[in-house]
Amino acid sequence: MRYEIRLSGSGGQGMILAGVILAEAAAIYDEKNATQSQSYGPEARGGASKSDVIISDEDIDYPKATNIDLLLALTQEACDKYICDLRKKAILIADSFRVLKMPEGDFRVFHLPILKTADEVVGKAIVANIVALGAIVEITGIVSREAIESAVMARVPRGTEDLNRKALTAGINIVRQYMKDAPGDSPLAS
């Protein structure tokens, strides 16, 4: 099974690093096949930025997502731009403060306060990408808890381990809270 993930937002939100960590979790710690590729503008900050992660039991040839199973959108622009690449019944995770106009279609929506949680609960806006990874893993189970935690720890600067562990947990918690508030939907993790 080929599983296509696109992490999108604006430059500086850490979407490419989040893609690298997610792919490393799958490839190194869960020993699946994975690729990570990226697309960004010439700006250092701002501008559209996205990272595609493909996870599969089989060999992966084409490294770009064209039939997306999961889209993370941290800006309205990213959400509007990539929504058309979602397959039916795909998952859309959108930031509840930056994505106000939610698209309609045949997909499951998780409208989560990712940026706000990073800023107010974890205490640093910069860890929004790690909060998002926590949410993705809680919703999909596409990589294991252990794998994502190991991959995050291996990538973040020394001295920020606790902060990032807190961010990962916060991401998991906002999904649990979201599920509680919207009964009927259950996580897709198997």
Binding site: E24, T35, S37
Partner: peptide
């Protein structure tokens, strides 16, 4: 750019 920047095992 694609294979220069993409990651794989």
């Amino acid at each position: 750019e694609i294979i220069g920047h993409m990651r794989e095992m």
